[in-house]
Amino acid sequence: KKYKVVEVKENKDGTVELVVENENGEKKKITLSKEELDKLKAGDTVELK
């Protein structure tokens, strides 16, 4: 499934919390490390299994 990044929030521990949404409007929260996030920004599309 493809999800669009709608919100990006940095946590104090250096991880980043993303809120992503698919075309049905379903939202998910995922947490990434700073390194994983470096290639993402709001409006990008991510694929989740």
Rank of each mutant, 00 (worst) to 15 (best):
V20E: 00
L37I: 14
N11R: 06
L40E: 01
K9H: 10
V46K: 01
Y3K: 00
K1W: 04
E17P: 00
S33D: 12
T31L: 07
V16A: 11
L32I: 14
N24T: 09
G43Q: 04
G14S: 03
Y3Q: 01
G25S: 02
T45S: 11
L18Y: 03
K4G: 02
K41V: 11
K27N: 06
E21T: 05
K49N: 15
V46N: 06
N11P: 03
T45Q: 06
L18E: 00
E17Q: 09
K29L: 10
Y3G: 01
E17F: 11
G14P: 00
N11F: 09
K34T: 09
Y3A: 01
Y3T: 01
L32G: 15
V6G: 01
E47T: 05
D44M: 04
V19H: 09
V20C: 07
E10K: 07
E35P: 13
E26Q: 08
G25Y: 03
N24K: 11
K34C: 12
V46L: 14
V8A: 06
E35L: 13
G43P: 02
E23R: 04
E17H: 08
A42T: 09
K39F: 12
E26N: 04
V8I: 13
S33T: 08
V16Y: 13
L48K: 01
K39I: 10
E23T: 07
K41F: 04
K1C: 15
K39E: 13
K41P: 03
K41N: 07
N24Q: 12
N11A: 07
N22A: 13
G25I: 00
N22M: 05
K2S: 06
V5H: 01
E47P: 09
I30V: 13
K27I: 11
E26G: 06
V46Q: 02
E10G: 04
N24F: 14
K27F: 08
E7F: 08
K28V: 12
K29H: 13
T15R: 07
I30E: 00
G43M: 05
K1A: 07
D13R: 02
E23H: 07
K29N: 08
G43F: 02
E10Y: 09
K2V: 12
E21Q: 08
V16F: 13
V6C: 13
E47G: 02
T45L: 14
K12A: 08
D13T: 02
K28I: 14
G25E: 03
K1H: 13
K29S: 09
L48I: 13
E35K: 12
V5N: 00
K27G: 03
G43H: 02
V19C: 13
K29R: 12
G25D: 01
Y3P: 01
D38H: 12
V20I: 10
L40H: 08
K49L: 15
D13V: 02
V8T: 04
E17W: 10
L48S: 01
K27V: 11
S33C: 15
I30A: 03
L18F: 04
E17A: 07
K49Y: 09
E21V: 13
V46Y: 02
G25K: 04
E21D: 02
L37A: 15
E7Q: 08
K9F: 12
K9Y: 10
E23L: 06
K34L: 10
K1G: 10
E23K: 05
E36H: 15
V19G: 01
E36T: 13
V46H: 03
N22T: 10
T15E: 04
E7D: 08
L37S: 15
V20D: 00
L48N: 02
L18K: 00
E23D: 08
K34M: 12
D13W: 06
E7L: 08
E47Y: 13
K1S: 08
L48C: 15
L18A: 05
E26W: 05
L18C: 04
E26T: 05
K41Y: 05
K9T: 10
E23Q: 09
E35F: 14
V46W: 04
E7H: 06
K28R: 12
D44H: 03
D38L: 08
V6S: 02
K9P: 00
V46T: 05
N22P: 01
L37E: 04
L48H: 03
G14F: 02
E36Y: 15
D38Q: 08
K4L: 13
S33W: 14
L32N: 01
T31G: 03
L48D: 12
D44W: 01
S33P: 14
V46F: 09
D44A: 02
A42Y: 04
N11H: 14
G14E: 02
V19Q: 05
V6W: 07
E36S: 14
K41E: 09
G25Q: 03
K4R: 09
E10F: 08
T15Q: 05
G14R: 02
N11E: 04
V5W: 02
K29Y: 13
K29I: 11
K9I: 12
V6Y: 04
S33Q: 14
K2E: 06
K29V: 09
T45E: 14
K39L: 05
K29Q: 11
D38K: 09
T31S: 10
L37Y: 10
V19P: 00
Y3M: 04
N22Q: 03
K4D: 02
G43L: 02
D13G: 03
V8C: 14
K4W: 09
E26K: 04
E10W: 07
K29G: 09
N11G: 07
T15P: 01
K27R: 11
L32K: 03
V19K: 02
T15H: 06
Y3R: 00
T45I: 13
E10C: 15
L37F: 10
L40T: 10
E23C: 15
K27Q: 13
D13L: 02
E21F: 04
K1L: 12
E23S: 10
D13F: 03
A42V: 15
S33A: 14
K49P: 15
D38T: 12
L32Y: 05
E21H: 04
L18D: 00
S33G: 13
V8K: 05
E35M: 10
G43K: 01
L40S: 05
V8R: 06
T31E: 05
L37P: 05
L18S: 00
T45N: 06
T31M: 10
I30F: 14
E17S: 08
T15K: 05
D13Q: 02
L37K: 15
E26H: 09
K1D: 13
V16W: 12
N22C: 14
V5L: 07
K28H: 14
E35I: 13
E7W: 06
K34S: 11
K29P: 03
E26A: 07
E17D: 13
G43Y: 03
V6H: 04
L40Q: 01
E10A: 09
N22H: 06
E36G: 15
E47D: 07
V20P: 00
G14D: 04
A42F: 08
G25A: 05
E47L: 05
E35R: 09
K1I: 13
I30Y: 11
K34H: 14
E23Y: 05
K29C: 14
K1Q: 13
E47H: 06
V6K: 04
V8S: 05
D38E: 09
L37R: 14
E26V: 09
A42K: 08
K4F: 11
N24A: 14
V6R: 03
V6P: 00
K28Y: 14
E36P: 12
S33V: 12
E36D: 12
L32R: 06
N11T: 09
G14W: 01
L40N: 04
L37D: 05
L40G: 01
K41A: 06
V16G: 10
K28F: 15
K27D: 01
N11Y: 08
K34D: 05
D44F: 02
N24P: 01
L37G: 15
I30M: 05
E23A: 09
E21C: 13
E35S: 13
D44V: 02
K1P: 06
S33L: 14
L48P: 01
V5D: 00
L48Y: 02
T45D: 13
L18G: 00
G25W: 01
S33H: 14
S33M: 15
K12C: 15
T31P: 05
N24C: 15
E10I: 05
N24Y: 11
E7V: 11
V5G: 00
K4P: 01
T45K: 04
T45W: 15
E36W: 15
G14K: 02
V20W: 03
E35V: 13
K39H: 14
K9G: 07
K41D: 04
K34F: 13
G14T: 02
L32V: 09
N22V: 05
L37H: 08
L37C: 15
D13N: 12
K28A: 07
K28P: 00
D13H: 05
L32M: 10
T31N: 08
L48E: 05
K2P: 06
L40V: 15
V16S: 04
V8L: 08
K41I: 07
D38M: 07
E47R: 01
S33K: 13
K39R: 12
D44L: 03
A42I: 15
K9N: 09
V5S: 00
D38S: 10
E21S: 06
D38V: 10
S33E: 13
E36C: 12
K27Y: 11
G14V: 00
L32F: 10
G43W: 03
V16C: 10
V6D: 01
D13E: 03
E7R: 06
K12P: 13
K41R: 09
E21Y: 05
K28E: 05
L32P: 01
N22G: 14
V5F: 02
L48W: 05
E26M: 07
D38W: 03
D13A: 04
D44Q: 03
K4V: 12
K29D: 03
T15I: 07
N22E: 07
E26C: 14
G43S: 03
I30W: 08
G14A: 02
K4C: 15
D44I: 03
K34G: 14
V8M: 08
K49A: 15
E17K: 03
V8W: 09
T15M: 08
L37W: 11
G43N: 04
Y3I: 04
A42W: 04
E21N: 01
N22F: 06
K4H: 06
K9L: 07
E35H: 14
E36V: 11
V46I: 14
E47I: 14
L48G: 01
K4S: 04
K1N: 09
V16H: 05
E10Q: 08
G25N: 05
L40R: 02
E10M: 10
E17C: 15
V8P: 00
E35G: 14
K28N: 08
K28T: 13
K34A: 11
E17I: 10
G43V: 01
N24V: 08
E36Q: 11
E7I: 08
